[in-house]
């Protein structure tokens, strides 16, 4: 039993060391927000596809706090919770959409949303 445990321990140590690496993601490219033309319809289509289609932010169900069931409600949420939205949706360590096999939003999409918010969410 002891030899099995020792062997298993050594194998785990080897796997631990071999699988170690240190890499940083490249610097996000500065998308030119000044020249970017983004309208609400485009952003809301992204929100519908990634945030409301999975019954996550439709309002009425949990979590009810972020209700994106209409463009007006999305804008209202962002106006009231600007920093939370930036942290969880557009920031460098954004964690939305969460788990449940939903793919992370591409950086370019996050930048577009951030730019749209920065410009005052134009229609």
């Amino acid at each position: 039993m002891k030899s099995i445990l020792t062997g298993l321990g050594l194998m785990l140590c080897c796997a631990y060391v071999c699988s170690c690496s240190s890499e940083k993601a490249p610097e996000p490219s500065n998308s030119a927000c000044d020249t970017m033309v983004i309208n609400s319809a485009r952003i809301y289509a992204v929100i519908q596809m990634n945030c409301t289609n999975h019954s996550c932010h439709p309002g009425g169900g949990a979590p009810v706090v972020a209700d994106f069931s209409s463009l007006a409600k999305l804008k209202s949420y962002i106006n009231a919770n600007h920093s939370t939205f930036a942290l969880r949706v557009t920031g460098p360590n954004a964690d939305m959409p969460q788990s449940q096999s939903f793919p992370a939003l591409p950086r370019a999409v996050r930048d577009s949303i951030a730019c749209w918010v920065e410009k005052g969410m134009p229609d």
């Binding site: 785990l12 796997a15 631990y16 699988s19 170690c20 690496s21 890499e23 993601a25 490249p26 610097e27 996000p28 490219s29 460098p92 360590n93 788990s99 096999s101 793919p103 992370a104 591409p106 950086r107 370019a108």
Partner: peptide, 25 residues
């Protein structure tokens, strides 16, 4: 030792972009 089973992000700038398996650890 923790490994993530999530789908890799499409963009390399994302921390959840996994070029190879060890990036998940």
């Amino acid at each position: 030792a923790v490994v993530t089973g999530m789908k890799s992000a499409a963009e390399e700038e994302e921390p959840s972009y996994f070029g190879n398996f060890s990036h998940r650890m």
